[in-house]
Simulated scan of single mutants.
Amino acid sequence: MVINERLRVVLAEDSVVLRDGMVELLGARGCEVVATAGTGSELLAAVAEHRPSVAVVDVRMPPTHTDEGIRAAVEIRASAPGVGILVFSQHVEASWATRLLADGASGVGYLLKERVARTAEFVDALRRVAAGGTALDPEVVAQLTSSGRRSRLDALTPREREVVELMAQGHSNRSIAALLVVSERAVEKHVAAVFGKFDLPATEADNRRVKAVLTYLAEGGG
């Protein structure tokens, strides 16, 4: 399991002070930062050379400080799908985030710097993404789902909407049960109802959870 391994990380952050601090913090938490990058092109080169478990990417990087980082992240998703991507930024770039999630929500995270209160919380998200999970800040989810078709979402009950939104944030059934103060069995029933309303039958390679999150993000929620 990735959880028990020393994560290999490429860190893309143009602020030298923040970058050096993150390298130190991640190293203290059992991660190995194999390379750092200050530009989108440096990030692409570092990922191609080192093939890390996960890349931590800021959105706005030189030379234009607009969307170079997340553009590079989208390119990495296409060229190296086994590399997890955790966008860690002050900004939500909804259009590029949607493209980042276009081929699946597994192995993708998007956290806002000012909303991460503890290092342990960040490293937990990093490990989850590296293991193929999802870690989306609620504010990111809100912006991604601010518009869109409502047909299948209208069929959800308020509780089912809460459950699928927490799924989009990367929470397990056990975690959702704790947050909503209900039994894990109740959460399982809500998840099954979401699958049914989203027309997601069981398959041999059951990835319905990811498909349910993608449906939620694509059609609008929150």
Rank of each mutant, 00 (worst) to 15 (best):
residue 50 H to G: 05
residue 50 H to L: 07
residue 51 R to T: 13
residue 51 R to K: 14
residue 52 P to I: 06
residue 52 P to C: 06
residue 52 P to H: 08
residue 55 A to K: 06
residue 55 A to L: 07
residue 56 V to R: 11
residue 57 V to D: 01
residue 57 V to H: 04
residue 58 D to Q: 04
residue 62 P to S: 06
residue 66 T to S: 14
residue 67 D to Q: 08
residue 67 D to C: 03
residue 67 D to V: 15
residue 69 G to Y: 04
residue 69 G to H: 02
residue 70 I to S: 05
residue 70 I to N: 02
residue 70 I to P: 03
residue 71 R to E: 14
residue 72 A to V: 02
residue 76 I to L: 01
residue 76 I to C: 04
residue 79 S to M: 07
residue 83 V to K: 10
residue 84 G to D: 05
residue 86 L to E: 01
residue 88 F to H: 11
residue 90 Q to G: 12
residue 90 Q to E: 14
residue 91 H to P: 00
residue 93 E to A: 13
residue 93 E to R: 05
residue 94 A to C: 10
residue 94 A to W: 08
residue 95 S to L: 14
residue 95 S to T: 13
residue 96 W to K: 14
residue 97 A to I: 11
residue 97 A to D: 13
residue 98 T to L: 13
residue 100 L to P: 09
residue 103 D to Q: 14
residue 104 G to S: 05
residue 106 S to M: 15
residue 107 G to Q: 11
residue 107 G to S: 12
residue 108 V to E: 05
residue 109 G to T: 06
residue 109 G to V: 08
residue 111 L to V: 01
residue 111 L to R: 06
residue 112 L to Y: 05
residue 112 L to Q: 08
residue 112 L to R: 06
residue 114 E to P: 10
residue 116 V to F: 03
residue 118 R to D: 15
residue 120 A to C: 12
residue 122 F to I: 12
residue 122 F to A: 14
residue 124 D to C: 09
residue 124 D to A: 15
residue 124 D to P: 01
residue 126 L to C: 09
residue 126 L to D: 07
residue 126 L to V: 06
residue 127 R to H: 11
residue 127 R to F: 04
residue 130 A to R: 07
residue 132 G to N: 08
residue 134 T to E: 02
residue 134 T to W: 10
